[in-house]
Design a protein around this nucleic acid. Structure first.
Lengths: 342, 342
DNA sequence: CTGAAAGCGCTTACAG
DNA sequence: CTGAAAGCGCTTACAG
């Protein structure tokens, strides 16, 4: 018998009003099939008239779970993760879970803090991007028994259930396409590969393709740079100012590639006549820039949705389902052209 | 005396280990200044060795607050809200709060559902974008006593504390700039203005400018369209296919403007020689497209940070601080040129 | 400065 | 199908 004045109604209030125990009210809300029809109707009416909403904290505490999934991504400011995350969230919602997102600015220290913060908040499960991080983190997650899924990456060495695509193979395919266009001097603008397996694998993919085509290492010039449009622009300028500038510049992602296009323009170079440029991810930006980017299309939404169902299964006690690989698609657009005859 | 096997340590465990009561442990963590130095040292050591982390649910329940702030935004998929939200989140973190974000796809029904969901989850405060919504929602929020702040908008009629800019005045200023370039036939590509005060106010701003310059209503052609690049492109094509196409097209935001540029290109029109285009927001995209967009720069990060401090103050029991207005800056770039002599 | 104890509002075996 | 009751792990007046 609470209902003291202005505070919101509680389970007790509903139970009193419906003339049943709090246990029954709880069951009506959580496992309605275990309650008789007539009781349920009565209880739900009481819920309705009282405008009852379960108290989140109490529920969390009694049920020993928060119905919250945490996701930690490198950045929110660009669209790279936005679409996948949106799909991830939609699927979580469908299952009654809420998504908590934080971003790290690609800083491993920040990522570690965020992981601990999310665990402390009682996240029922965690989504992480990529797999290259301090092993201590994996130990910690295991000790805390927090189900964790890796997304955006697929590789044999991943120590946790994962869903993603093969960054190395994908980039190799793209590089093959570039080589098939006659390019023999290739520049690469990569995100910093330390602690970033996606970047590292994509670099390996380029090397794979060069090797497979018998091109010597001197054909390749690599610049690693922090993520961003400006940095991509600077890297492009630097690459093209060399004595034997590349005829094609492959960028680790579309954002860097957009910067590279600006760099080319700043130097008065026409893309693809003077130099070809490729991206990776196929975010919206890739079709907006001029010329449109040849890039690798990643199934963002599919990855997000599947990550959600997989992670929920883990939270519900399923065994690890290992790693799932998704396919990527090469999108050929105007930024990649034939190499100039020289 | 719990510590049964594998479960994480609790306050009880820490108290036992430090030889104090749970109350004292709690105080060490929450109000350390009320505990003697020696006790505190002892307790904190116990916390350390046990690896104790407070249970989130229990804390929420006992403290009657969740340390969670909810934000409901129209879309995550584009960068319009991303930067402001990022700053908002950083500031919240600094104060020990966590941000919960959900998006509505510009659908008022979905927004209402999300608001209720966030309140049910016990959000200590709410951030909403714009003010034009069903009054019943405001009644509901007041009854639930959830502190709420409106962002991205500033207008006298706003019923809640708000922080934003004057969309109408800003767009009027931009329209004046367009008119000053000699344009007399103006097209507008607007987001749907129903339920979207930002869009509606920006339309009014264009009308204000036309009126102030003695231009008759026939000078103005308006298309309202859902948000997106494709839709902006279609709207542009539709506008330019008319018998007396505009010499300048003002878009309600940068995303629509990016679409408009694509539409112009699809029709073989040069911007700004054949037609000028303007945007609004100054997101990164505005500088990436060709030509770069003349647009209105909004202080995204400042708005986010100030929104966070204001909302936290409300949550902590401060009186409403009314509405705060931020300044916007006109960014003149290549997409706006002089009207052709005709 | 510190402790004993009530209470936050639910869920869930356990009985019946 | 339903109820009585314990318990989830904290916080916070209230005393001392």
């Amino acid at each position: 018998m609470r209902s003291t004045g202005r505070s919101p109604p509680t389970l007790d209030d509903v139970a009193a009003r419906a003339g049943v125990s709090t246990a029954t009210v709880s069951r009506c809300l959580n496992t309605p099939e275990r309650v008789s029809d007539s009781t349920r109707t009565r209880v739900l009416k009481a819920v309705e008239t009282l405008g009852y909403t379960p108290n989140f904290g109490a529920r969390v505490m009694a049920a020993q779970r928060t119905f919250t999934i945490g996701a930690i991504i490198p950045t929110m400011e660009n669209a790279i993760f936005a679409r996948g995350l949106q799909a991830f969230q939609e699927e979580l919602h469908r299952h009654g879970y809420t998504l908590l997102v934080s971003s790290t600015s690609y800083d491993p220290k920040i990522e570690e803090k965020q992981i601990r913060a999310l665990v402390a908040r009682g996240a029922d499960g965690l989504l992480l991007i990529g797999y290259d991080r301090d092993p201590a983190i994996y130990t910690y997650l295991e000790r805390q028994a927090v189900p964790t899924l890796i997304a955006w990456a697929f590789a044999p060495e991943i120590p946790l259930p994962a869903i993603g695509f093969d960054n190395r193979a994908a980039m190799r395919r793209l590089a093959q396409e570039v080589i098939d266009h006659g390019h023999k001097r290739i520049g690469v603008i990569s995100a910093l590969s330390k602690g970033n397996d996606r970047a590292a694998e994509r670099l390996l993919g380029v090397r794979d393709a060069l090797g497979a085509n018998g091109l010597p290492p001197e054909c390749l010039t690599i610049i690693e740079t922090p993520y961003g449009i400006e940095t991509g622009e600077q890297a492009m300028i630097q690459l093209m100012q060399g004595t034997a500038p590349p005829s094609a510049v492959m960028c680790g992602n579309d954002v860097l590639a957009a910067g590279a296009l600006r760099g080319a323009r700043a130097m008065g170079l026409d893309v693809p006549r003077d130099v070809s440029v490729t991206g990776f991810d196929d975010i919206e930006m890739a079709r907006i820039v001029t010329p449109a980017l040849t890039t690798m299309q990643v199934p963002h939404r599919e990855m997000g949705t599947k990550a959600a169902t997989a992670l929920i299964a883990l939270v519900d006690g399923a065994q690890s389902m290992g790693a799932q690989k998704l396919d990527v698609t090469l999108e050929h657009r105007a930024s990649l052209g034939p190499a100039k005859q020289s």
